[in-house]
Design a protein around this nucleic acid. Structure first.
Lengths: 342, 342
DNA sequence: AAGCTCAGATAAAGCGGTTAAGTTGGGCCG
DNA sequence: CGGCCCAACTTAACCGCTTTATCTGAGCTT
């Protein structure tokens, strides 16, 4: 029969020291001589000891986990590659420290807020990662009030003490528009994401500004809910106009692929009659024919960096981290070309 | 300043009872009268009390979490919609009970095994969910030895005491092959998944058997690593033969989409010259043109059911659960048709 | 040699719950 | 009316680890 889980008391007995000494030794803090430390570590190793998580948490009031709470319809998780990337990226960063990732998917923002409160009150996690910051995000003040470490993926954020890690979407959007303008496009439609998202707004702002800079004839941003169906509907609508755009920028690859499908269905050739650019890259964008020109970024790496910053923040809650990760890069593929008649 | 987190001691004092009574009341177990219970609950509610997770775990030796450990290259997580579906499905089932899902992504099977051991030793979780059972899966005996509740997603499993929840892949594959045969296909290639996976083997077996049953001229299963690139390479190879197949069944939608791309690139028309069927459905399969005929199933619902079963198992570890979920269903779309010259 | 300091260890008090083992007092029985 | 039982509570131990005193003795000072 397997021996019961050893505790530090067992180690202490076997090593002939006190529980306290064992704790000091195992945590690498002063209070024991080097020699005793080595002896204790040897015994612990020999007995195959592992700290009991709950006991440790109770003792030092660290949960050893951080929370990620998503309020999107659950099925979105499987659809948007973004989530998988973020989750595995976060996980990688946290794992370096032995910290776990607790995931919760809820249906609405109220449930999300409730979960922040509950998990904080239960000391279930040491901090949170927030996705998709909104323009006037009600979660920010609430979380500030909870006085819990938070790392927002997105930004930059003003008017909040919360930490964030951002990528320069504006710059990336500039690059995209400059590229299209250089190709000779003057009628550009932007199929955007949810208008309340901060990054959606920033992208739309760049577009408005770009219109003047490049003396474009038309630049419109149309907000959506990120679904493939809205992407398709809007594409169908703008391609049905007499004065149709020669280029469309999509805020997600799912919408871009849906849009491409509509173009095919309507006999609009890509890229001859229409250029398509996706502000989001993934396998999806590469598997289509033609493959989609996209703004690509290392989402996973970004999330890993953010996770590390969050761990720093948890270690020292007085910090406010403002971290910037690399700017998305334009990867030209087959879906963009100069407009016909150019 | 915010009042410190209330503990049951605070509640006890305020309600004029002992800590024990409070614990009984809050957990709905006998030992207090209905009236006292109500009073205690009222006080707890008023003080906005939440149980401290670690304390509770230490007391009743339940971690209140289950683990999901994946050993796949981290990027796969973002690529395969399957994972997102499973994660959100599990999460939904566990949430009903307030149980959390701990996720870990590791690079290789050794690290996966190490994590099972560590998490069990640390009492970090109460049980595990296993994905992708292998034919002679070394994880099974190891986990049996650890004496920890486990629910395998896949099966059916023999020679193990582990519980599992399965969907009848064989039956589904039958349906797919019958359909193709009925359309008139006699040369069918199966671009399979990893050969060591149990479900890959079962699908391949069905195909072999189907060959005789339907008197097909050719039926080949070609194992792959599930990557889009292998899917493409193999498709290119089989389509280059003089005697090319008239239908290809892919074990994942990612490979199916990649295969469709190759067909387009080679001027092979789908479905006129080639029928494509995907043994896996997701947005991906629906967004392509033509949309892919696929075997579809409610992965998320399956995971939710499995999660519930795992909770039962944790409550009563003597159980061995054998749960069957619904069989995948064939959804004909545009990528399948009778072969040319039929 | 008395007085200090300080490293190296011990003992014991938590941390916030759960739970086994008492302790009451009222109702019911013969 | 004494004896018993049982529901309703209380006490206190315990879960496994951390952490804050507290203790001890060797080495230095003066």
């Amino acid at each position: 029969m397997p021996m019961a889980r050893p505790t530090i008391a067992d180690i202490a007995e076997r090593a002939g020291v006190s529980k306290g000494a064992v704790s000091f030794a195992l945590n690498g803090r002063p209070g024991v001589s080097e020699e005793t430390r080595r002896r204790i570590l040897a015994v612990a190793d020999e007995m195959n000891w592992r700290p009991h998580r709950a006991a440790r948490s109770l003792g030092n009031s660290r949960a050893g986990a951080v929370g990620l709470i998503l309020s999107r319809p659950a099925r979105t998780l499987g659809l948007e590659p973004f989530f998988g990337q973020v989750v595995s990226g976060l996980q990688a960063g946290l794992a370096e420290d032995g910290t776990a990732l607790q995931l919760l998917v809820v249906e609405d923002p109220e449930a999300e807020m409730a979960a922040y409160r509950t998990w904080t009150a239960e000391k279930r996690v040491d901090g949170f990662v927030l996705l998709d910051p909104l323009i006037e995000d009600p979660r920010f003040p609430a979380l500030e009030a909870l006085e819990v470490p938070v790392m927002v993926l997105g930004g930059p954020l003003a008017d909040t003490s919360l930490s964030f890690s951002w990528a320069d979407d504006s710059e990336a959007m500039h690059e995209a528009v400059d590229y299209l303008a250089a190709l000779g496009h003057r009628h550009v439609v932007h199929v955007a994401g949810m208008p309340q998202f901060l990054h959606t707004k920033r992208r739309m702002d760049v577009l408005t500004e770009a219109k003047e800079r490049h003396e474009l004839a038309e630049v419109v941003s149309i907000p959506t809910d990120y679904s493939d169906s809205e992407g398709a509907v809007i594409t169908r609508r703008v391609l049905s106009r007499r004065d149709r755009p020669t280029a469309i920028v999509y805020d997600s690859d799912v919408m871009a692929v849906a849009g491409l499908g509509v173009a095919l269905e309507m006999g609009v050739r890509v890229p001859q009659d229409l250029s398509i650019l996706s502000f989001d890259d993934s396998l999806l964008a590469r598997l289509t024919h033609p493959a989609l020109t996209a703004l690509t970024r290392d989402t996973q790496g970004w999330a890993t960096e953010a996770a590390r910053e969050l761990l720093r923040l948890i270690a020292d809650p007085t910090l406010t981290v403002r971290h910037q990760s690399s700017t998305p890069v334009l990867v030209p593929r087959e879906s963009t070309a100069p407009p016909a008649g150019q």
